[in-house]
């Protein structure tokens, strides 16, 4: 059975495009909206792609800006200029 990785973001206008992008790039992700925050779970791996966020946003986006609205996460992190990924190795 795969383990879930997860990402929780504050729910506001800045994160709308990020959540939309996650939905596009991670068909297996489940999105749960809670008061003031959005929780995204996915089996084994979850990826946020800069390009997809930029398409949703219509503007350039630096993945490090995501930290401003990040609430918590679970999983190993891998980040470069184009991709922010969470994963479990098992």
């Amino acid at each position: 059975m795969p383990s879930n990785v997860f990402l929780v973001l504050q729910s506001n206008d800045d994160t709308r495009a990020i959540v939309d992008a996650i939905e596009i790039d991670n068909p297996k992700a489940t999105i749960t909206r809670q008061p003031a925050m959005v929780r995204i779970d996915a089996p084994n791996r979850l990826v946020v792609r800069r390009e997809t966020v930029e398409e949703q946003l219509g503007n350039p986006f630096d993945l490090q800006a995501m930290h401003v609205n990040l609430v918590t996460l679970g999983g190993n992190v891998e980040e470069d200029a184009d991709e922010f990924a969470l994963y479990w190795d098992n």
């Binding site: 504050q10 003031a36 925050m37 930290h67 401003v68 609205n69 990040l70 609430v71 918590t72 996460l73």
Partner: peptide, 12 residues
């Protein structure tokens, strides 16, 4: 929330 936004870094 403001503190939590740093937590991702700390947890990692």
């Amino acid at each position: 929330f403001s503190a939590q936004s740093d937590e991702a870094r700390h947890m990692t």
